[in-house]
Amino acid sequence: MDSFNAIIQVLDSTIRLSVPLLLACLAGLFSERAGIFDIGLEGKMLVGAFAGASAAAVFHSALIGLGMAILISVAFALVHGFASITHRGNQIVSGVAINFIAAGSTIILGQAWFSQGGRTPALQPDERFAAIIWPGADAIRDVPIIGPIYAELISGHSILVYFAFAMVPFTWWVLFRTRFGLRMRAVGENPAAVDTAGISVAWLRYRALICTGILTGVAGAYLSMVQNGGFVKDMTAGKGYIALAALIFAKWKPVNAMFACLLFGFLDAAAIRLQGSPLPIIGKVPVQFMQALPYVLTVILLAGFIGKAIPPRAGGVPYVKER
């Protein structure tokens, strides 16, 4: 029973750790499917986390925090759009710039506004998104097997966790069952064709980037308002890049993205759980190895050793109208 409980705990933290990855990954999916590379996911999450925690602390409301996180994150996404769509700048350069501006400004503004060494004030319980206990969770907690699965894994997460997982089928539906999704995919593969059909390439890409901004904003809010009770400097700690890796791992498909993020979240959870304790058969695995594994797996995938990851064809290329 002990090992069962341990597994449940690891899976529970897997869910918690994979939520920000999943949100950021779906965010990246929107922009990359529309042909805009976005390595600024990290920065957008970071400003989202900062804006969310600051607004929640100042206005004493989790919802205002979330709204602010989304707003600021979308604003950064629009800067990316302005540079890479309107001015046809290099999308990777623009993404790098956004990451820097986010990393610097969150610390400077946090220090100037709250003077707590770049932190925001610790959030009170009512300024955060509380865990939702599903009906009957406490009643069947003691039932073997099903009880812990229901009470720990399914119930007891914040609304943003359910939102993240609900976004997976929703993204799939938008992408593959709506006109907007069809056009968005088209603009990522062959923008000239979309243009010929009389649809604005730029406006489509801007809308995709707004979706990206919304999702990274929620991801940031999750980090600073659910996982942590406030903003800590550099709290994304590379999650935006892992999300990018997961996106490639998922071959730009929403359901795959969920599994990729769960896998990377599981690696993280397992690394925390093991902390140098030996595994059966393999023996002791260094923590750093577990931490590097998502990146190594992605490189191996990219190298074409596990299937082939083919990005949207027009990705990274600014669209220039024939004149």
């Binding site: 540079a83 820097f100 610097g104």
Partner: peptide, 13 residues
């Protein structure tokens, strides 16, 4: 921040 702004204005824009 300045670094980011330089990359943005001298690079992407």
């Amino acid at each position: 921040i300045i670094q980011g702004l330089v990359i943005l204005f001298a690079g992407a824009l």
